[in-house]
Structures are given as structure tokens and as C-alpha cells.
Write a protein that binds this DNA or RNA. Structure first.
Lengths: 171, 171
DNA sequence: TTGGAAAGTCAACAAGACTGACATAAAATG
DNA sequence: CATTTTATGTCAGTCTTGTTGACTTTCCAA
């Protein structure tokens, strides 16, 4: 177990207060409630389609990285292939996702959103972006910078790497 | 649908960039990955006890507000009472939670952690706090302030009120 | 005092995670 | 060329955690 800062010599008294269990706990609870808000709008929309959060996640990342393979998506989502397969199957069957056999490596399936899939993706992400945008605007640019910084520190390093490669493609 | 800022006259060019769909989308993905990190440590611990995240949440908020009623907890957790009841039953049966019939209103149950329940709560929250603390320390005080501000803006107003009353008790 | 509302409990079901076993096809390797 | 590894898909079964519906007990107000 690490030294948790109570006796750390390099911290200012402001930092000592800032790192009290109480303060950290507030952050934990804020994270819990905020995540509920974060998923609330897409969840509401998904009810109309008989899809769930799992479908949303798949659609999101296929939209983000078109042509991604199943294996790649597995890595990003952190679920088992059986679990992802169930979701993908329904999305392919319903005509929202196109699964194309790889040209170089025919074992691979490359995933793309169809027009229909893209429409749902737009609907979902627009709802989610609207909330985020409102929060960002209310909080201001500096707060957003801090928000992003703390989130990056919270995730596992592996996910942090994954996120940075993903955003460098997408930008 | 609201004006999303692209033509908003009061925004600086820095803000225009800052509010691009791409930037917002990065935030969404960061939130997703960070939440995974956020729950990873408690989840690992819970495996040893045959409990899940739902048990953790109940334990957390009972610890936070000892003597809270089932109804109150329902409000905080945002699940159905039947769902919460299953979790509470196992916790009571296993001797982690004490459920006392209300004195004023005998319909109510007031919930308390037992010594055993407190021990698990400590183990779980210490693991979670350790990660949060590390993230906070790496990000710095200003970033943490921004983090908290954005999270509060992201949650539903009802939850924001709930959080503020909760923290005013706990502090 | 009685009927409705509120708090909590029990039962059954569904979504979405999991593990394990197995199949197929293609690529990589000796 | 034979063997092994990799990528994907599938079937079956389990677990957690959410849901709805039906029920009991308790309280309160008409």
C-alpha cells in the first residue's frame, strides 16, 4: 500500500486538504452520478429500438474506426467475443452493421455501419454530445481541460494508449 | 434541437474549436474508459466475496448515510426496490448490514453497516480512493477542480441536489 | 373504522456479462 | 506439405442485476 499523502513531505498544506478522504469520496460519488447522466439520454433512445447499452458501444466504436476488426473491437470494449458476437449478430441481422471478409486476411471481418446504422449512431451520439456540450459550456474551457486530464489519469494505461491512438486517427 | 455553438456570437475562436464534435467525442470516450478504471479495483476485490457492483454501491451509500431508509437508498441508486432488495437481503443474511425497523414508522427499515460490513467497505473504498488519489495527484489541484465542475454539470439536476445534500452531511 | 397509500418482500423473467467446448477457415511456420 | 496458431463464430449453461407483477404489513386520513 502506498503512502497516501498524509505525511508526504512535498505536498503543500493546500494539497493536504485537497487530498482528504472526504474530498476523494466526493469525487467518487460525483463520478457515479455523472456516469448515470452520461448514459441516460442514449438509454432512453435505445428503448425504442430494443437495443441496449452494449449495442450502443459497438455502434459507437465501429463509427469511430470504420473497418475495424472484431478482435480490435473486443480489445476496446473489454468483453468476451461471445458477448460481443451476440450484439454484432443482431446488428448485422437488422442491417445496421456490415461485416465484410478481409481482403488481405480472409479470416478477419471488417465492420462498417450501414446507412441505417449511421442514422442510429447519429441519433445516439447527438443526444450524448448535446449533454456533454452543455456541461462543457457551463463549466468552461479550463474546467474541461482538467476534466480530461483527470479522466486520463483514472483509466488503465493500456486504455490510455488505446484512446490516444484512436483519437490520432479520428482527428 | 439547440444551437450547438457553431454560430454562437459570444464564443471566442478558442471556444469554437473546443466545442467541436471531435473534442466532445474525445470526452465521451475518455469518460467510458475512465469509468472502467474507476470500477476495476473494487470489482477485483468483490470477486473474492461473491458480491457484485450492486453490493458495493449499497454498502458505499449505507456507509455514507448510516440509518438511511430503503426508500432513500432507492432514490440515490436509481434502481427498483425489488432489485435493491435482493442485494440488501444477501448483505443482511451475510451479516454485513443491519436492518432495523423504524421506531416512529414501523414500515421503514433503517440500514447500518455491521463491523463486518464496515471492514469490507473500508477495503473497497480504500482501493478506489487510492486510484482516485493517484489520478488527482498526477493531474493537480486545478485539474481536479475542473473535473468536479464538469461532472456536476453532466449529472441530472436531481442528482446534483442529492449529492450536495449528501456531502453537506458528510463534511 | 375502513380504504388507500407507502414500505418492503417474494417470484418470475430478461439483458448482458461470463466460462467452456467446439467448428471452420486461413495464415504462419517448421 | 503437415502442423500449429490465429480469427471468428456458435452452442450451452451460469451469474449478476436489472425489470414487472402480486402480495403483506403498516400508517394515515376521510
Amino acid at each position: 500500500m502506498q503512502n497516501q499523502g498524509l505525511a508526504a513531505p512535498s505536498l503543500s498544506s493546500e494539497n493536504l486538504l485537497f487530498l482528504t478522504d472526504e474530498q476523494v469520496r466526493k469525487g467518487i460519488e460525483a463520478m457515479f452520478f455523472a456516469y448515470r447522466g452520461f448514459t441516460a439520454d442514449p438509454d432512453r433512445i435505445l428503448e425504442n429500438y430494443a437495443y441496449g447499452r452494449a449495442h450502443h458501444r459497438a455502434i459507437h466504436f465501429i463509427s469511430r474506426a470504420p473497418g475495424t476488426t472484431v478482435n480490435n473491437l473486443l480489445e476496446i470494449l473489454g468483453v468476451t467475443k461471445q458477448s460481443l458476437n451476440r450484439v454484432l449478430r443482431t446488428l448485422v441481422d437488422d442491417g445496421l452493421v456490415d461485416s465484410r471478409i478481409g481482403t488481405r486476411d480472409k479470416r478477419e471481418r471488417h465492420l462498417y455501419l450501414t446507412e441505417k446504422g449511421n442514422a442510429l449512431e447519429q441519433e445516439l451520439s447527438e443526444a450524448q454530445r448535446t449533454r456533454m456540450r452543455a456541461a462543457y459550456r457551463a463549466a468552461g474551457p479550463d474546467a474541461v481541460q482538467g476534466f480530461r486530464t483527470v479522466l486520463e489519469q483514472m483509466m488503465d494505461p493500456r486504455m490510455r494508449r488505446l484512446l490516444s491512438t484512436m483519437t490520432s486517427i479520428g482527428n
